[in-house]
């Protein structure tokens, strides 16, 4: 069923696990449970080992991405400028924790270490848009804007963290 993923790899080659998982994520945007079972069978690794690897590396996601990805910078400059409050407000507004996706699949909330835009700290990004010198008051408006937007164009590969 997923022969297109496996055709570039040798069966029972345990060392192929990480590129294989990257390919899976490229296609699905995350690592679906069913596919992980097949990856385990193909590589000859126990599912628990595959799951262990998938949860060890930040680049892998086990849940599908929402339509909009919000990344909150928690780097030093943003931290000094109160990014903890920004993150807290977002978690409250969206009713999810960092790393999770809302039930309606509209938003995924992520934390990143530094976006490299320290001059406009505290900063968040929503998809490819930057919001700098952000205050908590502005957050509901921003969320509203994206929640009502028609489904975004094709999603790029998962997380960058």
């Amino acid at each position: 069923m997923h022969s297109e993923i496996f055709k570039n790899y040798t069966q029972n080659d345990k060392s192929a696990i990480i590129p294989l998982l990257q390919d899976v994520q490229q296609i699905y945007g995350y690592l679906p449970e069913k596919v992980l079972l097949e990856v385990a069978k193909f590589t000859g690794l126990a599912l628990s080992r595959v799951y262990g690897i998938a949860t060890f590396y930040n680049q892998f996601r086990l849940t599908p991405l929402g339509e909009n990805i919000i990344r909150v910078c928690r780097g030093t400059a943003c931290h000094v400028k109160g990014s903890a409050n920004i993150l807290y407000t977002l978690e409250q507004e969206l009713k999810i924790q960092a790393g999770e996706t809302t039930r309606d699949k509209k938003f995924t909330l992520e934390v990143v270490s530094c976006i490299g835009a320290c001059s406009i700290a505290p900063v968040i990004t929503v998809n490819d848009d930057y919001f700098g010198r952000l205050t908590t008051k502005e957050i509901p408006g921003i969320l509203k804007k994206y929640a009502n937007k028609p489904k975004a164009e094709t999603k790029k590969e998962g997380s960058a963290s």
């Binding site: 690794l45 126990a46 599912l47 628990s48 080992r49 799951y51 262990g52 949860t55 060890f56």
Partner: peptide, 10 residues
């Protein structure tokens, strides 16, 4: 050689 449990997360 069952592999039911393993280290996960980090």
């Amino acid at each position: 050689k069952i592999g039911a449990i393993d280290f996960t997360n980090r």
